[in-house]
Design a protein around this nucleic acid. Structure first.
Lengths: 336, 336
DNA sequence: GTGAAAGCGCTAACAG
DNA sequence: CTGTTAGCGCTTTCAC
C-alpha cells in the first residue's frame, strides 16, 4: 500500500515544522514566511504529490464542506434533475453532496438524517415525505442548518423553497377552460402533503372563478406510488362521465395516463384535452405532445443551496421562497 | 449553537475514561466491562443523545465507509438508475455514496477523482469518459480500490463490469433480420469508447452472419451529445436509401429519432422497423412501442459495488464481469 | 519570520 | 476486569 503523504512528510523533507507547511499550502499569513522557503515547500508538496486529508481538516475545523441531500425518489426525473442542479451549484461553492433517496418513506428518511449527522454534514436539504414533521422539528432543535425543498409543512416553520403549486394548477385549469373545455377531471394524490393539496385547490379555484361547478366525482385521488392499473381504473371512472379534459397532478400519473389513453385510441385534444403537472419524457412523444407545467427545477436547486449556505454561514432569518411554474402549451390542450 | 456531545462528555458524567465508553458503545471486549457500568454508560449516552462523530472515527481508523461514484451524465435515466442501484446496495453494506457527474468531460472527471481522494473515500466506482486512461492508470498506481462500470479501456487493465454490448447488438440486429427486414441502418456514436464500438461490431457481424452486406452509408456516426437536428439529418440521409429498419445505439438517440419519425408520419413497424439500445420512457409511449435492449442495471450496480467491497477488503485478483442484455420485443420491430 | 504544542473525537496498544 | 495514554493529520494560538 502506498503510504499517503502528510504535512509531516513535507515538513521533515524540507526541515521545517508542519505548521509552516500548512501556512504556505493554504496561502495564509503570506507575510509570515520567506519567499524562498515558501517556494521550496510548494515544490516539495508537488513532488511528493501531497494531497490534503480533508478528514483531518474537518475534524480540526469542525467543518466538512459537505451537505446532505434527501430526495423523495431518485428514479423520478424530477429528483435526479434536482440533484444535479444542487450538485452543480454545490461544486461551484466547494461543497460536496451526499445523496440519499427516501423512497417516500419516513423511516428511511430518519435513517438518512442520522447518517448525515454522524458524518457531520454542514447542512441538509430535504424533500420531506409524509409524516416527517417530527424530523424537521428535531433538525431545528439541534440547530443544524437545513432547507426544505419542493415540499413543506405549514405547521412547522422552516426555511423552504417550493413552487407556487396553487398558481400553477390554477393556470393550467384556467387555460383548459379558456380553450373551451367544459368538464375537466383531475387525477391527483390522496395525501397529507400540502404542496399537492395546493394543486387540487388551484383546480377547484380555477373552476369556481370561471363559473364552473366543482364536482367531487371528477376529482380522483390515488395513493402515492399507485399502479398503472389503478390509474386506468380512475380514468375509466372519469370517462364514464361527460369529461372532456384531464389534469394530471404529477408526471408519473400523466405518464401512466397517456399510455392508457393511447391504448384506448381516444382523440387528443379534440375528444379529450390533457395537461400535466411536471414533465415526462413522454410529454413530447405522445402523438399529441402534452401541455404541461414546467417546474423551475434549476432555480429551485440553486436557491435551496444558497439559502442553505447562508444558514451555514450564520444567517438567522428564516427564508422561504415560492417560485412560479410555467405553462408550456402544446397540442394536447388546444382544440383544433 | 448546541454543543455536540462527545465520548468525553459521557465519560466525565459517568466518571470513567473515554476509552471505556468507546468499548461499551461499540460492543467490543464485552467481557472487559462490568454489566452495571455498561448499562450506566449506555443510558447516559441515550440521555445525552450522543451521536458518534464519524469524522473522528475515520481519522483514527483510516476508513471512511464512503465510496465515490462518477457517472457520465446524471440527467440520463441510465445514470440515475445505476446510481440508485449502487446506493441501495451500499447502504445495505453500511457505506455512503458521494456522487459526481462527469458530463462526459475528462477534466471534470479528474476533478471529481481528486475530491474523492481528498475525502479519503475507501473506493471509487467510475463510468469513465473518453480520454481518461491516464486517470485510471493513476488510480491503479496509488493503489486505491476502484471499479470501472459500463465502460472500460481494453488497453488498461482494471476491474470492470459491463454489458455484453457486442452480443446485445448482435441479438437486436439478428432479430430484425429474422423479422424480415432487409436493409438495416444504424445510428451510432463516433467515439473511442470501446463499449460503443462493440455495439457497432455486433451490428456488422449480425449482418454478415445473415449474408447481408454491410454498407458504410447505412451506418451514421454522430458525436456524443449531438442535437436533435443532427439526428434528424442522419435519419434523412438514411431514409433516402432503401432502408427499412433502424437500430439506435442509445436511448438518447432513439428518443430523438422517434420524435422525428413521429413527425414524418412514417409507419412503424411496417414501413420502418426500430430497435433501440437501452430504454427510454418514450419506448412505451410511441404509438408502436419500441423493441429495445434492456440493460441489467441493478445487476451491474450490485456487482460493481461488491467487487469494490472485495477490493477494499484486500482481495487482489482482478475481476471483470460481462453481463448479458435482454431483448424486449415490442411492436416496433414486428412486421404485421 | 518561524516553530512548538495543544487538541479536534475517536480507537487501540498497552498497562495495571 | 478496568483504565490510561498515544496519536490519526491537521490548524492555530502563542511564544520565540
Amino acid at each position: 500500500m502506498n503510504k499517503k503523504v502528510s504535512l509531516k512528510d513535507i515538513a521533515q523533507k524540507v526541515g521545517v515544522s508542519t505548521a509552516l507547511v500548512s501556512y504556505v499550502l493554504n496561502d495564509k499569513r503570506q507575510n509570515r514566511v520567506g519567499k524562498d522557503l515558501a517556494k521550496k515547500i510548494k515544490k516539495t508538496a508537488t513532488t511528493l504529490n501531497y494531497r490534503p486529508n480533508q478528514i483531518a481538516k474537518s475534524l480540526k475545523t469542525n467543518k466538512t464542506n459537505t451537505i446532505g441531500l434527501i430526495v423523495a425518489d431518485i428514479s423520478n426525473p424530477f429528483s435526479s434533475q434536482i440533484a444535479r442542479a444542487i450538485e452543480d451549484e454545490a461544486e461551484k461553492n466547494d461543497y460536496t453532496v451526499i445523496l440519499g433517496s427516501s423512497g417516500e418513506n419516513a423511516e428511511k428518511s430518519a435513517k438518512l438524517i442520522n447518517i448525515f449527522l454522524e458524518r457531520q454534514v454542514d447542512g441538509i436539504i430535504i424533500c420531506p415525505v409524509e409524516n416527517t414533521q417530527a424530523q424537521v422539528r428535531y433538525l431545528h432543535k439541534i440547530n443544524i442548518p437545513f432547507v426544505l425543498l419542493d415540499r413543506y409543512f405549514p405547521e412547522v416553520k422552516a426555511n423552504h423553497v417550493s413552487v407556487n403549486n396553487f398558481g400553477a394548477a390554477y393556470m393550467a385549469v384556467d387555460h383548459l377552460i379558456k380553450q373551451g373545455y367544459r368538464n375537466i377531471g383531475m387525477i391527483a394524490y390522496k395525501t397529507s402533503l400540502v404542496h399537492l393539496q395546493e394543486r387540487t385547490r388551484g383546480y377547484i379555484e380555477a373552476l369556481r372563478n370561471n363559473k364552473q361547478s366543482f364536482k367531487k366525482s371528477r376529482l380522483k385521488e390515488l395513493k402515492m406510488g399507485c399502479t398503472q392499473q389503478e390509474v386506468e381504473k380512475a380514468i375509466d371512472q372519469l370517462l364514464k362521465q361527460p369529461v372532456d379534459a384531464l389534469f394530471f397532478t404529477s408526471n408519473t400519473l400523466a405518464s401512466c395516463g397517456i399510455k392508457y389513453i393511447n391504448k384506448l385510441h381516444i382523440q387528443v385534444p379534440n375528444d379529450l384535452g390533457i395537461v400535466s403537472f411536471d414533465e415526462t419524457e413522454a410529454a413530447d412523444l405522445f402523438y399529441a405532445p402534452l401541455t404541461y407545467i414546467k417546474q423551475p427545477i434549476d432555480e429551485m436547486g440553486k436557491q435551496s443551496l444558497h439559502i442553505l449556505l447562508d444558514k451555514i454561514s450564520g444567517k438567522k432569518k428564516m427564508i422561504t421562497s415560492n417560485i412560479d411554474g410555467e405553462l408550456i402549451v402544446q397540442r394536447s390542450s388546444v382544440l383544433e
